[in-house]
Amino acid sequence: MRDYPSFLACSVLAGAIAAILDYVVERIGITRRLWDYPGERMPIGQVPLSVPLLFFFCGIIATLIVFLLYQQQLVSLDHPAPTVQVGLVQAGLVILACYFIVQYAVGRVRSLTFWALPLSIALYLFFPEPMLLAIAVLTVYVDYYLEKSLVKRSNIRYEGYNDQTAINIALSYFATTLLLLEVVTALAVVL
């Protein structure tokens, strides 16, 4: 990506956005005692530095994926302007997402999917790329496998962790991955 400074800048910005969003979600989860990272070193407000750093690199990887798909002409960054009708649907989905962000922040909703899914769909309507959907679906299965196998062997304490929790987290990664890939696509167009 050295020869494409806009993608390089996009990767750092996407990484920063992913790290900040993850930090907020982790902090809310720890504050509500939904999970904990006992014995972790270098915490920032009880969130281990390694977790937002991991998501920072996920933002960079998402940019690399979009860049490679763009190079292979599997993703186009040239899209016609959305119609007014699609714009209204997008606005409604963003409002719905904002409502559920507030509901999650105050503790009335425990699933991240309720805000991430409408926001992802709103972005997808602006940049409809089937490859991005396929990658987002793949992350559901990868995360479910990792969640089930790693949580059992790690230092993370989940209260009431069960198969339903693993499914909820995996489904939220569909929306989160799609959201991240769409943000990268939007940033690549702007930058």
Rank of each mutant, 00 (worst) to 15 (best):
M1E: 15
M1R: 15
R2G: 08
Y4V: 04
P5H: 10
L8P: 00
L8M: 07
A9N: 15
A9V: 00
S11V: 02
G15N: 11
G15E: 05
L21E: 06
L21K: 01
V25R: 00
E26A: 09
I30S: 07
I30V: 12
T31N: 14
R32Y: 02
R33G: 08
Y37H: 03
Y37Q: 03
G39Q: 01
E40V: 07
R41W: 03
P43Q: 13
I44Y: 12
G45Y: 07
Q46L: 12
V47H: 12
P52F: 01
L53V: 05
L53S: 12
L54G: 04
F56D: 00
F57M: 14
G59R: 08
I60R: 10
I60C: 09
I60T: 11
I60P: 01
A62V: 01
L64S: 09
L64H: 14
I65W: 08
L68T: 13
L68K: 12
Q71N: 13
Q72E: 08
Q72Y: 11
V75K: 06
V75A: 13
S76N: 15
P80I: 09
V84S: 14
G87V: 03
G87L: 13
V89G: 01
Q90R: 15
L93H: 04
L93Y: 11
A97I: 03
I101E: 06
V102H: 03
V106I: 15
V106S: 08
G107V: 11
R108A: 06
R108L: 10
V109R: 10
S111N: 03
S111V: 02
L112I: 10
L112G: 13
W115T: 06
W115H: 03
W115I: 03
A116E: 06
S120N: 03
I121Q: 00
A122W: 07
L123I: 03
Y124P: 02
Y124N: 03
L125E: 01
L125M: 06
P128G: 05
E129M: 07
M131F: 15
M131P: 08
L132S: 03
L132K: 04
L133R: 04
V137Y: 04
L138C: 09
L138A: 10
T139Y: 05
T139F: 04
T139I: 14
Y141K: 10
D143M: 11
D143A: 14
Y145V: 14
Y145N: 10
E147K: 06
E147Y: 07
S149G: 03
S149F: 08
R153D: 00
R153M: 08
I156M: 02
Y158E: 13
E159P: 01
N162Y: 00
A166C: 11
I169P: 01
I169E: 14
L171R: 08
A175L: 09
T176A: 05
T177I: 06
L178V: 14
L178F: 12
L179K: 09
L180Y: 13
V183M: 01
V184G: 10
A186D: 06
V190K: 15
V190S: 09
V190C: 11
L191R: 12
